[in-house]
Design a protein around this nucleic acid. Structure first.
Lengths: 224, 224
DNA sequence: GTCTATAATCAGATAGAC
DNA sequence: GTCTATCTGATTATAGAC
């Protein structure tokens, strides 16, 4: 997967290497392009962190620019709007999710699902999971219009949806629950305020919090 | 309870009824006071509805004023800030919660807890549950400084906390879970995005959604 | 592409007449 | 207390020099 992406990226490099001046120019362009990509990644990472910390509404573009160390106008050369910036942050985390899902060792579907939820909650607790308000309509429109976002979301949903159905077929997940409700419930763990409240209390480690919420999610509050 | 509050309010009425002019003036004051209270309640209700619909950050004071049909400056005569307005909305719902808890018929603690969660989710789905972002620091400060809010929250938490401990002692709720984690998990159902997602899907009734989320909350996703 | 400087807008809060 | 009109500050977004 990731080697695929690298080979695709390197195939964009110019193939003419014979004439020095041209080579220099080409190298310069490639270098610039790489620098550009690095900077864009820095912007997205800063945005991602601030989105996790303060949420979309309270995050300002000024902050993001200041965090990266560039002027706000420069940021707007890379991303046409605050919404697009947030969308890029979501695409990035969906990319990470795709890698994570692809690299998961084979296991029972239920264990796969638990591993994904554990991973999402860890990202949340370490401030790497951007949390977007589902109510903001302009943001929603931008996300829906982003092919990269929709594709990433669909791919993740397909993978997890298949696991859910398998787990239900095996009787590991309650077959009476609609699969879509199960999927939403798992997704919701990524932005569960219980994680923040327990962290604020300060009496549990991140690992304990993750296992606690994971347990209540799959096993429920009632005794078994 | 409510009869108590009414008698207290009526005890504020002037006791001098002999001299007509005075009586007229007094009656006018009382009427004005009642009108004031009614207007404040209308403001809080509008705020509550908009908080549920759009959240704190996206709700504007202009909207609230327009919804009530008064000028924004008039609203600020009643509430010193947007945060205070949100706090009043929370106090109101906590008051409703107190009434609901007091009127609950005696039952097993687990059933009491389920009834409360069911009630909170119904309020959410009917747009009567204001949802405040836990990240906004100025809002948090206002809430923490509000005695009415803190008292209401403490009282509800005490009541529910006692039920949780009883249910754990009886082995109905998993005794290995910290009671505070259980309480947070129940509170979180009041602003669960899963409710909104399922409602948006349009294939479930509000009652079905409530029972679905209630089931996953207490019984978990895994089969029993 | 990056910067400084600035536009344009919006929202929370207030002044002052009635 | 209520209104109209305004202030103030913050924020998204852009113009234009380099």
């Amino acid at each position: 997967m990731s080697s695929n992406r690298i080979s695709r990226a390197s195939s964009r490099q110019p193939l003419t290497v014979a004439i020095p001046p041209v080579q220099v120019v080409s190298a310069k362009v490639s270098f610039k392009t790489q620098m550009l990509k690095v900077r864009e990644e820095a912007i997205v990472q800063a945005a991602s962190r601030l989105l996790a910390e303060k949420g979309f509404d309270l995050m300002t573009v000024d902050e993001v620019a200041a965090d990266v160390g560039i002027a706000k106008a420069s940021l707007y050369k890379h991303f046409p709007s605050k919404e697009a910036l947030a969308a890029a942050a979501m695409v990035k985390v969906l990319d990470r999710a795709r890698t994570f899902l692809a690299d998961l060792p084979d296991a029972h579907p239920l264990d796969q699902l638990k591993a994904v939820v554990r991973w999402m909650m860890q990202l949340h607790l370490t401030g790497e999971m951007p949390s977007l308000p589902s109510q903001n309509s302009s943001l929603r429109a931008t996300l829906m219009n982003s092919k990269a976002y929709m594709d990433g979301l669909m791919e993740a949903s397909d993978t997890m949806g298949a696991w859910i159905e398998q787990a239900q077929a095996q009787g590991l997940i309650n077959p009476q629950l609609p699969a879509i409700a199960v999927l939403y419930t798992l997704y919701a763990r990524a932005c569960d305020p219980v994680l923040d409240f327990l962290k604020m209390g300060g009496q549990f480690s991140n690992e304990q919090i993750v296992e606690l919420v994971l347990s209540t999610c799959f096993e429920g509050l009632a005794s078994r």
